[in-house]
């Protein structure tokens, strides 16, 4: 009913208030604004997930772009009984894992891309983990801690990385992660358990 009302008045309706499934239905009907809304909603989570996997801004943008292009060009295949975001993350993860397998680029410094030829390039590809409402000291500590976590995540195996990022950064349930990554539920739990353990070990020096 909501969707039919919106279709009746496409220009005056606020897409941002609609759930993903309704926006995807409007995209199926060729509404360009609905496509843009889906990109707007998920560009940051998808880009962040991929960036934390590949650690290279340019590559992450290319992979995120491929993800959206694939999903949106096949929007007619989307079934509203499934979560749109799970489908999107599944494509993003598959493309990223394929890329990592091809390039074998699984562990990179938090300070920037290993492909950076100059200091400026390294800076441009580095991860900025600063928060905007911190004092200089807090900022330094936060940056140090944030960098340490980012660095520790970068050291994880790609499959652990996907699981831990989806669980704690994107807030997905174990079941959703299993569906997104095409893994058995038990495997997802094991991966997350091991990832947490490895992260705690890697960050132990910061607690002492």
């Amino acid at each position: 009913m909501t969707v039919s009302l919106q279709i009746a008045l496409p220009s005056s309706y606020d897409l941002s208030t609609l759930p993903d499934a309704d926006v995807a239905t409007l995209a199926k009907e060729g509404r360009e604004a609905a496509f843009r809304e889906l990109v707007h909603r998920y560009e940051r989570p998808v880009f962040s997930l991929i960036f934390r996997m590949v650690r290279d801004r340019e590559t992450a943008e290319d992979l995120a772009q491929d993800t959206f292009v694939r999903v949106l060009n096949h929007i007619d295949r989307y079934r509203p009984e499934f979560k749109f975001s799970s489908w999107l993350f599944k494509i993003a993860n598959n493309l990223t894992i394929d890329h990592l397998r091809k390039r074998q680029l699984d562990t990179i410094s938090i300070e920037g891309s290993p492909h950076a030829a100059t200091t400026a390039e390294a800076e441009a590809t580095s991860v900025d983990v600063r928060s905007h409402d911190e004092s200089p000291l807090e900022e330094i500590e936060s940056r140090e801690l944030g960098s340490a976590i980012e660095g520790a995540i970068a050291q994880l195996r790609p499959e652990y990385r996907s699981c831990i990022l989806l669980r704690h950064v994107e807030g997905r349930s174990y079941e959703e992660i299993a569906a997104t990554l095409d893994l058995p539920l038990g495997t997802v739990k094991t991966y997350i358990h091991r990832a947490r353990h490895e992260l705690r070990e890697a960050l132990a020096h910061l607690r002492t």
Partner: peptide, 8 residues
């Protein structure tokens, strides 16, 4: 959980 999202 407090890790920020990056902006493309």
């Amino acid at each position: 959980e407090h890790m920020p999202h990056f902006q493309p």
